[in-house]
Design a binder for these strands. Structure first.
Lengths: 344, 344
DNA sequence: ACCGGTATCGGTACCGGTATTGATACCAGT
DNA sequence: ACTGGTATCAATACCGGTACCGATACCGGT
């Protein structure tokens, strides 16, 4: 392989100094149009494309925005990433993604790794990082936006909503339609702390009315904890099990839409009327729910918007670091009861 | 904000030279255990975490693997990314993701951008990059793996399968069960060239038997081209339209599983027996198909495996650039006919 | 012709690390 | 005591750009 082209090559080819070539390519001023043309022409001809490493080291700043999410398998997070990407389109900033698998240690390592690239800003999922991660973020010296949550103290800024409240709200809405014997189906509560808070909020709302969960089951009931199973299939199996044990349930709350949808599949196959016989409620408002309009109640989260809003906060903070804006931005999920609404 | 810690700070705190500190932190040899301990201790105390920009510029190599995918909205690509991430876990290499929105110009820009970070390798979706992008890849001087396809000449290596063949194969399998009046529902064929090739292969297989598509429809039939609609809902609407126009169809092939699933939703709601009255076939083998086991035929693509295999090829090439291995690795989709198989 | 101002360009010193080479200390062997 | 080898560390020269500042050329005004 031939040696990589450097700015010096471009400069030589264009017959100008390195400095002028640098300015010409970056569109700096103080360069004659003639020089700009010659330099760009030369760069084009020899196939030069710059070196971000050198540029960033020299200018002591990058155009990178680190985005840390817990998972790629749950479509919600790619959608958040999409929102970030879209909001950054047309700006100089560029997103870089990292995945933590819901593991705080992996998260810490990912954050350290990202910071060692000296990003211009960081978007991190969740507010409940362990102390050492929080300190890392606090000392980073760049705008930090925590997303998908609003319960707790953000390191810097945050965009999201209260999961406890989300659980409480949908419980309240469901109870208002007259449902009373409520069950719960969960995924991996031990790792997904936000799902756990939704459940807690949900349960709290039940208790506030003198009720409680009339039955529950989670992924650990399945072989290998159900980890190997696609979420939809998992929800289907868990629902079958739960309804076998507690046929009297008139409502099931799931930790997310995929599971809830699996539940619907079971009910359809088993001839159980939804929501007449048993109502189902999920979380997120995924596209697959539209397949059976109205069948599943859900809280529609604004994940693309959250990603976009986070990106915008970073952008604005970089433009005007002084301006003080509200640190917490709440984008509350919108409850959709589907067919239940008509019945109530 | 206090000034960022540098290696010099660590060295000063530990009472050694910059060089020794560098070696100690990287685990190089020729450093006494006592020094290593002191340096690590010092780094820990002052909260030093390195600067990849400087390190990479200095050593003229990075641990970055660029991964370029067309979309994040289709869960298939996050799964590919997951496969890459997993395969790279435990190695020094680190994936960086880029999204092109199926736009060749965006792709070109993304590739240039990635290359200017001097990655150690590149994983790119598809084999049909335009000429200038191909040249960029060919001249990059790092291992390149193109994925999700095997038709055409790879720049370097590739892992995937033939989409033409995939379309042909499922057509053949469907026809073998006696189906004859076959329709097609597509998404954005104009941009997704691989989906277009599947359709072409599918159609070719029909023609080889003296048949042809008995009806077809695509996203452009919907307001805004159906772009705003979730894929499942889109499939549902398109299926309704197509079956209204061509009620005689006994089979519909979709450009992917999401659309096919939408079709199933329509049929269930409309009381159309699947696959008895009309058989449905999708593409990918997504988890949501498991919701109604056997209802939808599909070609199960090994996308996680493809991502992992691509990552492994890069790893091996970096370890031993000389070793010549096969440049094309085919991971053929596995056809699953579901309930159709039993009937035939 | 001389002056100051503007437009354009180049030289130098870094950015924060690492590869390389050279220096130092200490030891055993003879 | 002297030599050679080994272990450990430090100094120097970059990596490929950019910030900063000084230099040059050219202009109109007087």
């Amino acid at each position: 392989m031939k040696k990589r082209k450097t700015l010096a090559d471009v400069a030589a080819a264009a017959g100008v100094s390195k400095m002028t070539a640098s300015r010409a390519l970056r569109g700096d001023k103080d360069v004659s149009q003639a020089s700009v043309d010659r330099v760009k022409q030369a760069a084009q001809e020899i196939g030069y494309y710059g070196n971000h490493l050198a540029a960033s080291l020299s200018s002591t700043h990058t155009d990178l925005i680190g985005v840390v999410v817990p998972s790629l398998e749950n479509i919600v997070f790619p959608q958040v990433m999409s929102g970030v990407t879209d909001a950054l389109k047309g700006t100089a900033l560029q997103p870089v993604f990292g995945v933590t698998d819901y593991d705080p240690e992996v998260e810490y390592a990912t954050l350290r790794n990202m910071l060692s690239w000296r990003p211009a800003g960081l978007i991190v999922t969740g507010l409940d990082q362990p102390e050492h991660s929080r300190r890392l973020l606090a000392d980073a010296g760049v705008p930090i936006v925590q997303i998908m949550d609003s319960e707790g103290e953000p390191v810097d800024a945050c965009v999201g909503f209260s999961h406890t409240e989300a659980g409480r709200d949908i419980a309240t809405a469901l109870l208002a339609t007259g449902l009373r014997r409520v069950g719960y189906v969960g995924g991996n509560l031990d790792k997904d702390l936000r799902a756990a808070r939704r459940k807690a909020g949900f349960r709290q709302a039940l208790r506030d009315r003198g009720l409680d969960l009339s039955g529950e089951i989670d992924g650990s009931a399945l072989p290998q904890g159900g980890a190997a199973l696609p979420a939809v299939a998992c929800g289907r199996r868990l629902t079958a099990e739960l309804l076998a044990r507690r046929p009297e349930l008139d409502c099931i709350y799931y930790s997310n839409d995929d599971l809830a949808f699996g539940g619907l599949c079971h009910c359809l196959a088993a001839g159980i009327d939804v929501p007449g016989q048993v109502a189902l409620a999920g979380f997120n408002g995924l596209g697959l729910i539209e397949g059976f309009p109205g069948k599943i109640a859900t809280s529609r989260t604004a994940r693309r918007e959250i990603g976009a809003a986070a990106a915008r906060i970073i952008l604005e903070t970089l433009q005007d670091p002084a301006a003080d804006r509200s640190r917490v931005q709440v984008l509350k999920p919108v409850i959709s009861l589907g067919a239940l609404a008509a019945e109530s």
